[in-house]
Design a protein around this nucleic acid. Sequence first.
DNA 1: CATATTATCCTCGTGTCACGAGGATAAGGG
DNA 2: CCCTTATCCTCGTGACACGAGGATAATATG
Lengths: 392, 392
Amino acid sequence: MSAGIARTVRWRAAAEVLGYLRHHPRPTRADLVRDLHLSSSSATEITGRLRRARLLSEEPAPTSGRGRPTTLLRPHPDGPLLLAIEVRHEQSRWALAGLDGQLHDMHTHQHSSPDPEHVLATLTDTVRQLRHRHSGRLRAASLAAAATVRNGQLVQSATLGWGPVDMSPITAGTDLSFIVGNDATLAGVAEARTGATANTRTALHLLVDVGIGGGLIADGRPWTGATGAGGEIGHLPLGDFTLHCPCGATGCWDLEVDGRALARHLRQDSPTDIRGYAYRVLAHAASGDTDAVAAVHRVVTALARGTAGLVNTHDPTAVSLGGLAVPLRSAAPHLFETVYRNGLMTFHRQQPPPVLDAAHGDLGALHGAAAIGLDHLTTETALADWHDSRTA
Amino acid sequence: MSAGIARTVRWRAAAEVLGYLRHHPRPTRADLVRDLHLSSSSATEITGRLRRARLLSEEPAPTSGRGRPTTLLRPHPDGPLLLAIEVRHEQSRWALAGLDGQLHDMHTHQHSSPDPEHVLATLTDTVRQLRHRHSGRLRAASLAAAATVRNGQLVQSATLGWGPVDMSPITAGTDLSFIVGNDATLAGVAEARTGATANTRTALHLLVDVGIGGGLIADGRPWTGATGAGGEIGHLPLGDFTLHCPCGATGCWDLEVDGRALARHLRQDSPTDIRGYAYRVLAHAASGDTDAVAAVHRVVTALARGTAGLVNTHDPTAVSLGGLAVPLRSAAPHLFETVYRNGLMTFHRQQPPPVLDAAHGDLGALHGAAAIGLDHLTTETALADWHDSRTA
DNA sequence: CATATTATCCTCGTGTCACGAGGATAAGGG
DNA sequence: CCCTTATCCTCGTGACACGAGGATAATATG
């Protein structure tokens, strides 16, 4: 019935219900009525519609106390699926997600070669197989990569050792949507949705690996910027202007908070395995090596000072730390706290935004990719498309 | 009909039409049909409903060419009004805005005393008078202030010389909504809606006055942060860590880009009239005073370097400059451009986000306050409320 | 001046949606 | 075995967006 407003408006309540499902894995109809302020008749109608559209199925709920037993809502066994992918240097990981956001069928693939061609071929083959196995159900692929993302393409990646790469061929020739995001930013999304900073209106995620990434998340959505490169917080010039960053700028914060910074402070050559080197220095510091302790303290100071500056600027409800930032802070928690507080504007000090360790560990990027991907599958438009494709 | 979804869903299309009106002052019905993808029957129905609700009125359109003449849509003469207010050091300004976003009845009031009590009393009286004059039409007051805003209150203001002030008594005892925002941030909103960065998805506004304010704007909405203090970009620690900022932190960018920085570079005492001092130094530099030129160059460098860092981090489509930033840049445009480009990540340099002078001049904050205030009046909920209050 | 052309508007009937009221249903509790 | 409690379902209502097709009002043309 037309391509106007009505076609998508129809699915507005349905989209809300599916959004609710993401954060409440097995809700009852009564839960919907209570939390979404629906009438029970609307709940009946909406769930019925979602069932007919093969988006939801219902199963009897285990009874608990008096009252008529209700049913639990869950993704339909023939419902849409999302493929979440994370590309790392040494391996790729992927998993499937249904409309409840739970990851399943997780696989890890060790790269026999780190070349983008090889990774692309592997992932393309994976998509082909999964499409075959779940005919028609696979609707989108959402990829997290340790790279600068711009207009849906990877621009450069120090971590992967890649130049510009277009990953969209993974789904070329299919009807799947394809989404790319920066891994640190997506990890922040996961934290803001279901992790350390869950239920905060605005959050800041800081993930240290090679450099520092992450960024701002408002209401679960990342600040992506104009072209998708809106989480490159490591390239704020908070550092030493005499240092040149591989990104092309000078004085980047990136250079002050990772293994490269530790090596510089220890007057050693920049290591090839920057992350492994950092962990070794942290171990030396833990065992009392004073030089290592001093180097770690300088890096923790840079991390805390920048964190405070970003809190001043963007006023997040809470901050989450990921990757190397977690052991860095716990190597000198008091120092971090002191520098953090001293870097805050006075009015922030009464109740500084808490700085929390990430809850998703190294699965954050995959969870974030799934979250963003499922957002795309549960828009009113996407639901209308799914329904039309099933009934046509 | 209930307090559920339906009550507000009804007004969804209406809200879209009123949003359209904000950026297209006198649209025809045919414009609506074309741009909002409505059917002509829907346009008839929606405009009819909005007319009955005293939100829109129609007037015959001047004919131009063939075809049946159409009507122009405009705010209803008995429709809702917003009061936009800007509080400055020496004066307050206010204006009324209808649903088309046009400001009218603008007034300026010179403060006989800069005390908050005096300003509050003046504005409270203004609200009382306007409410009397436009009985029932005045629905909200939206205030822009040169202060740090937090949870709807002013926390501190170096410019105004105020400590914490609660401005909400302005509308106490009325049914008016009250909204406060930082003036620089709201000026950024105005630029992003109808000014230099109009039609950009994400924009960055930099307004130099005493310190630097502004912030990020996505799709016309400012990044307000958790408590509303999300535009304090001047308190990023991009500067000299040995300098203490009145905000409580050290090394703030604030201290590098305004009259205080110029005075420091000229080895003079920090002036009381920081803005006036800055303009005087700019005049000296323009007339060839080499010391002044050097000082201006240092400030322009700090401004351009920070701008590049924020572009790296947040990837805006475009940047707008306001206040003192405009004459600063034009005092050394080549220097600004060079430092700006050199501060960008390589992949940004092919097409750097343009840095544009603000289009609204010193009316930006007032326009931004009006824009945000009208947003509140045209939500589906607010429209439902307005309708119910008119028909009850 | 009459007719054709063009653009816009309106009316009617249809399909869909959310909802309230009130009855039906299914457990546990006494 | 009936009552209580909680949930679900059916029915009727009011509202919305839309397509089809006719009506309307200007300009253009002869």
